[in-house]
């Protein structure tokens, strides 16, 4: 943005007011960066040292050590299970929430706000923070991870689904109401078919995201590949850490391929 401002202003492409606005935004941006740089608590010597430190670290990762590979792959499978089961439950649980949070299906104003409250609290709290809480409740392990991912996903899926419900074509709804169908049957025949494509798209998208999220649950003790990574890093076993990182990379790429295939197949 800054680059184009300077270049474009030489031609006076913008009116005086626009130019002042642009300079204002530019000055504000610079001010914010200046404030951040000058007051952030870092030891600058470490900053200049950082590339060397990073190089050193990566140097110690080579070559990756595959001796623990079978254990890594087993836990990787567990990671996939966490993401899949949690997504499945979250998607099912998000259906009633979406129904509550959509203006045109919610029974009354109070239920609308209940629905929105669930969505906002689920969405604003990160998976890791949910995981911290559930590890405290369920103890360390994959159950806490599944519940954490579920809680975070309900808001995501519910919000997008609720928006899809609000955007449907209302004419079929009117037509089915005119046939004397009950509220539930109107939803099943006029609303559900219209939001089906969104439902599948959002579920697949969230599964893809959850695959990534479930790789870090282990760092707070909530199961999955993160536990092995944490262990390797804590014992400075960088060569094994490298294997784990490569395994995660493979998993995520594979996940993206699978979700792209599913999207093509279903949508």
């Amino acid at each position: 943005m800054t680059l184009s401002d300077l270049r474009r202003d030489d031609w006076s492409r913008f009116s005086l007011k626009q130019r002042l606005q642009r300079y204002g935004v530019l000055a504000l941006t610079l001010l914010a960066i200046g404030w951040a740089v000058s007051s952030i608590e870092v030891i600058w010597a470490w900053v200049w040292d950082a590339p060397e430190q990073m190089g050193d670290l990566f140097g110690r990762m080579i070559p990756p050590d595959p001796s623990n590979l079978s254990a890594i792959l087993r836990v990787l499978w567990e990671t996939v299970n966490i993401a899949t089961i949690a997504t499945a439950f979250a998607v099912i649980l998000s259906l009633p929430v979406a129904w509550l949070a959509a203006q045109n299906t919610t029974p009354n104003r109070a239920t609308l706000w209940v629905g929105r409250f669930i969505l906002v609290s689920s969405r604003s709290i990160n998976t890791i923070i949910w995981a911290l809480l559930f590890v405290a409740i369920f103890g360390p392990g994959i159950v806490a991870g599944i519940v954490a991912i579920m809680f975070r996903s309900i808001g995501f899926v519910g919000k997008l689904l609720g928006e899809a419900i609000e955007e449907i074509d209302k004419r079929p709804v009117e037509a089915l109401e005119a046939t004397g169908a009950s509220r539930f049957k109107v939803i099943a025949y006029a609303i559900v078919p219209q939001v089906m494509p969104t439902f599948w798209a959002v579920s697949i998208l969230r599964w893809d995201i959850n695959l990534r999220e479930s790789t870090v649950l282990g760092l707070v003790g909530a199961g999955g590949i993160g536990i092995i990574l944490q262990g390797a890093i804590d014992t400075f076993n960088w060569r094994e850490a490298a294997t784990v990182l490569l395994a995660i990379l493979g998993l995520v790429i594979l996940g993206e391929i699978v979700s792209a295939w599913l999207r093509r197949r279903i949508l």
Partner: peptide, 22 residues
Amino acid sequence: ELRRARRKIGMVFQGFNLVDRL
């Protein structure tokens, strides 16, 4: 009661009002 009465009244619409994906 209203739903029972509506069953006896058929309606055809300008925009057809079909469920496209069914």
